[in-house]
């Protein structure tokens, strides 16, 4: 699959066609503008809120030492970073599927599909081309926020590695959701149905985050722990730990939160040994699990989509 990547890009008319029609219309321009306006508003609100808080603390610690000012600045930097990444995660998970839902089924609806698949273009090139064009656009949405990210970096409180990591993970999230959307688009009966199927995955996932956080909260609470897990042997303890870690890691939102907690608490970007249920259990950073998971799932979705296009239909 990896070795097909150059072939997909070299002179692929689907990529050119998709990008041209996307860039020629006004829709893309409006969407990008809306995206940036939304981000600016968010950053502005964060700035006002955090600034006011720091003013209050400044008034409280009247002396207003340099140290305080530095802390206030890094608090603001962190807040802007978290704010933009969270917004981007929502944008990517909500817009990605909407952009890919029509990729194949809209060609069928417009009666252009048959003519496309009987050309010499391989199904890999068709799927790869569609996906690439959408990912280029998603990349644009993510990269458009870099000015805000660098602002956060210069305010302090956010490491350069964190910013790079967040951009990479956002692109991976885009890949995962766009691959899913593309696969759905190969079998759905209409664009509307494709959208419905996509959001049937995305919305429970987005809503599932608070639920999983709640679940984790209960499981780690002393009350629940003593009731059920007191004296739990090592293997079940490890299994439960890994299970929860996995579930928190495959959802981009909870992955982002837990990865940040992981990095802050352990001081490592990758690996740590932490105490769970009375045992020291080695764990990896959630973002690593997500990286592997999203790459594997994307490969599965892309492969399935290619298979669908390869097949001669019965209807």
């Amino acid at each position: 699959m990896i070795k097909d990547v150059p072939a997909v890009w070299r002179n692929n008319p689907v990529v050119v066609n998709e990008l041209r029609s996307r860039m020629r219309g006004r829709r893309t321009f409006l969407l990008l503008t809306a995206h940036l306006v939304l981000l600016s508003i968010l950053v502005f609100i964060i700035y006002i809120t955090v600034y006011q808080e720091t003013q209050i603390s400044n008034a409280y610690y009247y002396s207003g030492s340099f140290q305080r000012a530095l802390e206030a600045s890094s608090t603001l930097g962190k807040a802007i970073f978290y704010g933009t990444v969270t917004l981007l995660l929502f944008v990517v998970t909500l817009i990605g599927p909407a952009f890919t839902a029509g990729a194949i089924v809209s060609e069928k609806e417009r009666q252009t599909y048959d003519l496309l698949v009987i050309t010499a273009l391989s199904p890999k090139a068709i799927i790869g081309g569609k996906l690439s064009a959408i990912l280029v656009f998603m990349g644009l949405l993510v990269l458009a926020t870099l000015p805000f990210q660098s602002m956060a970096f210069f305010l302090g409180g956010v490491a350069f590695t964190e910013i790079i990591l967040s951009v990479g993970l956002l692109l991976l999230t885009a890949l995962l959701f766009c691959s899913l959307g593309l696969y759905v688009s190969t079998f759905a009966r209409s664009v509307t149905i494709a959208n419905m199927i996509n959001y049937a995955f995305v919305i429970p996932m987005l809503l599932g985050v608070p639920f999983m956080a709640f679940l984790t909260g209960i499981l780690s609470s002393g009350f629940f722990f003593e009731r059920f897990f007191n004296g739990l042997p090592y293997l079940p303890a490890a299994a439960i730990t890994y299970g929860i870690l996995f579930f928190l890691s495959i959802n981009p939102l909870s992955m982002a939160v837990t990865s940040e907690i992981f990095i802050q608490e352990t001081g490592s970007y990758f690996f740590s040994v932490e105490k769970f249920f009375d045992f020291n259990i080695p764990i990896v950073a959630p973002w690593l699990i997500f990286t592997v998971f999203s790459l594997v799932m994307s490969a599965i979705f892309i492969r399935a989509a290619v298979r669908r296009v390869e097949r001669v239909p019965h209807k």
């Binding site: 008319p13 066609n17 009666q111 009987i118």
Partner: peptide, 28 residues
């Protein structure tokens, strides 16, 4: 085979030239 179906759609925002150029690309 060259196939002309009974009904076929075209892409929006595409000129006659671009349409043929697109399919020329599809046939390498």
């Amino acid at each position: 085979l060259g196939y002309v179906p009974d009904f076929f759609g075209t892409y929006n925002d595409m000129t006659t030239w671009e349409y043929l150029d697109f399919f020329a690309g599809c046939y390498h």
